[in-house]
């Protein structure tokens, strides 16, 4: 019991965990349909893409950067991969499709990274600019219409079910694990944390910050591309307008998970919890049948409550 108490008093995860428990219990009491395996299948299915994108965003934000072009990246990757499948004889090869997707994501990340680190443009606005460019290219390439004709094998790689667990959720958890290791046990993760905390200090110690920043943007780009491929595979269609506001969703769960926007501090696990919380809220509002117009209001309120709850403990811990 004391351990539990200690957890809620000191852990950085206590905010989202507390919120998840409160909303979970409330929903379970309100509706018999909430606390069921099939519903958790639903939720895990719905939040998978957000988790995948948000992991990259977490590390980037910790390093003091941000990437608002991930939503457009999702769309452009889907469109490019599907264009390949439609154009290639016999539906194309799955591996080449994946390679195209990853390359596309890496390239878009590289563009962002170069603009931000080498050319020293502020990331928020620079990636807002590239977001417009990427989205526009996706619209031009697809002619503005959804593209059917996604390779069946490709669909099986990125979505479906393993037993009752959605494959895309397993992919997402795998990425969380990789993100966790990268952030806590690899050099690049430590440099990201140090850079977000005090960039000048890192620079003085002789580390080439620019190079690492570019790599972080490439990682974020690749993860967004994986998100794009999962989305394309889940829907069996690539839409040039897909992924709108995914960047805001991603940033929201990163912050709900306790990561500081100013950089320096944050965790991948917190982000996962944030995504779970947002997923439960959206699912719960539908389950209890809140009318469409009221949903936005409640989602906003609950985000606010969750960050307030998370923040109180953080203050106490630091005081």
């Amino acid at each position: 019991m004391r351990k539990v108490q200690q957890f809620f008093q000191t852990s950085v995860y206590s905010g989202p965990v507390l919120a998840i428990i409160i909303f979970g219990v409330a929903l379970a009491l309100y509706s018999p349909h909430f606390l069921q395996v099939s519903n958790f299948v639903n939720i895990s299915n719905q939040i998978a893409i957000n988790i995948i994108i948000a992991v990259g965003m977490t590390i980037l934000i910790i390093s003091g950067g941000i990437d608002l072009s991930v939503g457009a990246n999702v769309a452009l990757t889907g469109v490019l991969v599907t264009l390949y499948f439609r154009g290639a004889p016999g539906g194309g090869s799955v591996l080449i499709g994946i390679a195209i997707g990853i390359t596309c994501g890496a390239l878009l990340g590289l563009i962002n990274g170069l603009i931000v680190s080498v050319l020293k443009a502020p990331p928020f606005i620079a990636t807002l600019g590239t977001s417009g460019v990427f989205r526009g290219i996706a619209l031009v390439l697809s002619g503005g219409r959804p593209l059917m004709g996604v390779n069946e094998g490709f669909i099986r790689v990125f979505s479906g079910f393993v037993g009752r667990v959605p494959l895309q959720f397993i992919i997402a958890l795998g990425i969380v694990l990789v993100g966790f290791i990268t952030l806590n046990h690899l050099k690049i993760g430590r440099i990201a944390q140090a850079t977000g905390g005090n960039e000048r200090c890192v620079r003085t110690s002789g580390i080439r910050v620019e190079r690492y920043k570019v790599i972080l943007y490439v990682i974020t780009g690749v993860l967004a591309a994986i998100g794009g491929m999962v989305l394309t595979s889940m829907m069996a269609v690539a839409e040039p307008i897909a992924g709108q506001f995914y960047e805001l969703d991603a940033v929201a769960v990163v912050v709900m998970g306790g990561t500081l926007m100013q950089g320096g501090k944050g965790t991948v696990i917190g982000t996962l919890l944030g995504a779970v919380l947002l997923g439960i809220v959206r699912n719960g509002l539908n389950i209890i049948g809140v009318p469409a117009n009221y949903q936005q209001l409640f989602v906003g309120l609950i985000i606010l409550i969750a960050v307030v709850a998370g923040n109180r403990n953080k203050d106490r811990a630091t005081q």
Partner: peptide, 18 residues
């Protein structure tokens, strides 16, 4: 609450639109 402006105003975006 010493919260980050980005997240507070993002939540408010949703609330006020609703």
């Amino acid at each position: 609450y010493r919260l980050q402006p980005f997240i507070v105003t993002l939540a408010m975006l949703s609330i006020v639109r609703g």
